[in-house]
């Protein structure tokens, strides 16, 4: 378990987190390679199905990164995403997966540092939690 490297799926909004990730890259900021970024046109486009499938396919952690409050390019997709994440957290609990493995974060396109920091923090958190119970059971 010492060598456990979590797989983390980050659904990143094109207008904020994805650009922030880009910035983090061009600034050569370090963030863990555990985070697999999936670009979405808006965090509001992330569906319950995407989240649940990510876990089913072996993710140890999932987060949705959307724009700051009031800054959604499509009015309120980020708020919708937050509600969906809260809803899916309850479902994860029903299934027997720690709800802390799923998170909603917010940032703006200019926050390269924050992107890197969030990626590191979430990776640390999931590393401490250990492999997802699904992955553990499948192994």
């Amino acid at each position: 378990m010492k060598d456990f490297e979590p797989v983390i799926v980050a659904f990143c909004c094109h207008y904020c987190a994805y650009t922030a990730a880009d910035m983090a890259g061009s600034k050569r900021l370090f963030y863990p390679s555990n985070v697999k970024i999936i670009r979405v046109p808006c965090s509001g486009k992330v569906d319950s199905l995407h989240i649940i499938k990510a876990f089913e396919k072996g993710a140890d952690g999932v987060y949705v990164a959307g724009c700051l409050e009031g800054d959604c390019h499509f009015k309120n997709g980020n708020d919708k995403a937050a509600k969906k994440v809260a809803h899916m957290s309850k479902y994860l609990e029903e299934i027997g997966i720690e709800p802390e493995r799923l998170e909603m974060v917010r940032m703006s396109a200019g926050m390269g540092e924050r992107f890197a920091q969030v990626a590191s923090e979430i990776t640390d958190k999931i590393r401490k939690l250990g492999p997802s119970p699904i992955k553990a059971a499948a192994a």
Binding site: D47, E56, E94, G96, I134, A137, A138
Partner: peptide
């Protein structure tokens, strides 16, 4: 269709977890 997918995943994972 979507809820079917979400439930199928949930069932699969619960089952897997219970061996």
């Amino acid at each position: 269709r979507k809820e079917v997918g979400v439930l199928a995943s949930g069932i699969q994972m619960s089952m897997l977890k219970n061996g």
